[in-house]
Simulated assay, not measured.
Amino acid sequence: MKKLVLVFMVVMLASPAFAVEVAPRISDREIIESLAELKAGQKALEAKMDLRFIAMQEQMDQRFTAVDQRFTAMQEQMDQRFEAVDRRLDFIQQLMLITIAGIFGPIPRCARWICACADWRKISNMIWSCNHRKVQN
């Protein structure tokens, strides 16, 4: 049994050696030609990549230009809206000033009239007589 295990182990350890093939000899000229082909392929790939990067850059530039135009348009719309709101607020302010002047405008006239009358008895008699006449009618 030991011999069988020993033979089996020798066969298993030696089997990777059977998988190795002897490579044919390559000349220096073939090596140089294959390297030249690889370099040419590498340059072609670099040229294609450069073209793709240039195309991507142009697309990005176009998109940024479009976004800038949108922002400019939005800014103009906002400016127009703010101007409209400013005009409305100016109108409301002027309307308030006119209303306040309409309410408080007659007060100085009445105050001048009251101050012009030095005798308060005359004023009270005038008021009493006006009220008394209304009651009699």
Score class of each variant (00 low, 15 high):
2 K>V: 10
3 K>F: 00
5 V>Y: 06
7 V>Q: 04
11 V>S: 11
12 M>N: 10
14 A>E: 02
15 S>R: 03
15 S>V: 13
22 V>R: 11
26 I>K: 10
27 S>G: 04
28 D>N: 12
28 D>F: 05
29 R>A: 04
30 E>D: 09
33 E>M: 12
38 L>W: 03
39 K>C: 07
39 K>Q: 03
40 A>M: 06
41 G>S: 07
42 Q>K: 03
44 A>L: 06
45 L>A: 12
46 E>W: 00
49 M>A: 09
57 Q>G: 06
58 E>S: 00
58 E>P: 00
61 D>F: 01
62 Q>R: 08
63 R>S: 03
66 A>K: 05
66 A>F: 02
69 Q>T: 08
72 T>E: 13
74 M>G: 04
75 Q>F: 09
76 E>I: 09
76 E>V: 04
80 Q>S: 14
80 Q>W: 04
81 R>F: 06
83 E>K: 13
84 A>G: 13
84 A>F: 07
85 V>K: 04
86 D>E: 03
89 L>W: 03
96 M>K: 15
99 T>D: 08
102 G>V: 01
104 F>A: 05
106 P>A: 04
109 R>K: 01
110 C>A: 10
110 C>R: 01
110 C>Y: 08
111 A>F: 11
112 R>C: 05
114 I>C: 01
115 C>E: 14
115 C>I: 15
116 A>P: 01
116 A>I: 05
119 D>P: 05
119 D>I: 09
125 N>L: 05
128 W>M: 04
130 C>L: 14
133 R>E: 13
135 V>H: 10
135 V>Q: 10
137 N>W: 11
